[in-house]
């Protein structure tokens, strides 16, 4: 059987794609089963989000009595969206936007600079830094929560916007992604521009970076998503409620005993609103996400 693979003449290629076909009825059944399984799983994956949306328009009592129903008994935002301002939600949203914006721009810029240097420029210690970047990627993030807090306090950056933004401005995985990309593009274009004696930064900014568009978009999306969803770091980097981002803010809703009842419509409305920006970015740039999934794999 093992030798059969080597049999040379395989002329009729077309029908071979499926091999000897099973009887039609069998194939139909298989397809039906495949769809049934996929639809079942799609329901399991989508229904929670539908419940999230529906519950945001219910009253607390309605949500408790009919958790499964996707149609509110009475449509209302009285116990959900209307309550958001009272819990300082707009402030959290603004903070999240500010942090995500700065972190995304910073990461894309600094990571691609460093990635380019590591891929192309010759300088002393390049190999050591390369190794260090890869080593740093292997350190599990949760392990560093306490030490990061300690350093922030020592640098007088604890509980400030600086402390929430600056440490996130560069990440090893992003540098690695950019470096891999720069290595993969041909060096000739740069060589040509170099002969024109363009400065290294100008060369990078106006020749190399535009060529790296797909990688830059992937990194932009990963950085935005990463900083928008970041939770544990903001938990230790700040203490005052004024600096709550959406993640830590909604977390305080989950643990806090504000007012009466379980407040599920309010919590789910807040969760829904914080999901929307990522959802929009996801649906617009889906193919970059999917590319990033394997690239970001290194990130762990």
């Amino acid at each position: 059987m093992s030798t059969a693979v080597a049999t040379p003449p395989r002329a009729p290629l077309a029908p071979l794609t499926t091999g000897p076909r099973p009887p039609l009825a069998g194939r139909v059944i298989k397809i039906v089963i495949a769809y049934a399984v996929l639809i079942l799983f799609a329901l399991i994956y989508i229904y929670p989000f539908l419940i999230e949306i529906a519950t945001s328009f219910k009253t607390g009592a309605d949500a408790t009595a009919h958790p499964l129903s996707l149609v509110p008994s009475t449509w209302t935002t009285q116990e959900s969206f209307s309550q958001l301002e009272g819990v300082n939600f707009p402030r959290w949203f603004t903070n999240s936007v500010v942090v995500a914006l700065f972190v995304t721009v910073g990461r894309v810029f600094f990571d691609s600079l460093a990635g380019y240097a590591l891929a192309r420029l010759h300088f002393m210690g390049r190999r050591a830094i390369n190794g260090a970047i890869i080593a740093v990627m292997a350190v599990p993030g949760v392990v560093l929560l306490i030490p990061k807090y300690l350093v922030l306090v020592q640098l007088h950056m604890y509980d400030t916007y600086y402390g929430m933004i600056i440490p996130l401005l560069a990440d090893a995985a992003g540098v690695f992604i950019m470096r891999q990309f720069f290595i993969s593009i041909p060096v000739e274009v740069e060589e040509a521009a170099r002969i024109d004696s363009a400065g290294t930064f100008r060369l990078f900014w106006s020749v190399v970076l535009p060529m790296a568009r797909p990688a830059v978009i992937t990194l932009t999306i990963l950085s935005f998503q990463g900083s928008w969803n970041e939770f544990s770091y903001f938990l230790v980097a700040r203490g005052s409620p004024q600096l709550n981002t959406l993640t830590t803010g909604v977390a305080s809703l989950l643990s806090g005993q504000l007012g009466a009842g379980n407040q599920f419509p309010l919590k789910l409305a807040a969760a829904l609103l914080m999901t929307i920006p990522t959802a929009v970015v996801f649906f617009v740039f889906q193919r970059y996400f999917i590319r990033g999934a394997s690239a970001g794999a290194v990130k762990g």
């Binding site: 958790p67 969803n229 789910l268 969760a271």
Partner: peptide, 14 residues
């Protein structure tokens, strides 16, 4: 791609 906080909120409800 959604935030862990948002997902936990939904799961706590479910």
């Amino acid at each position: 791609v959604t935030s862990s906080v948002a997902i936990v909120t939904v799961f706590l409800f479910m």
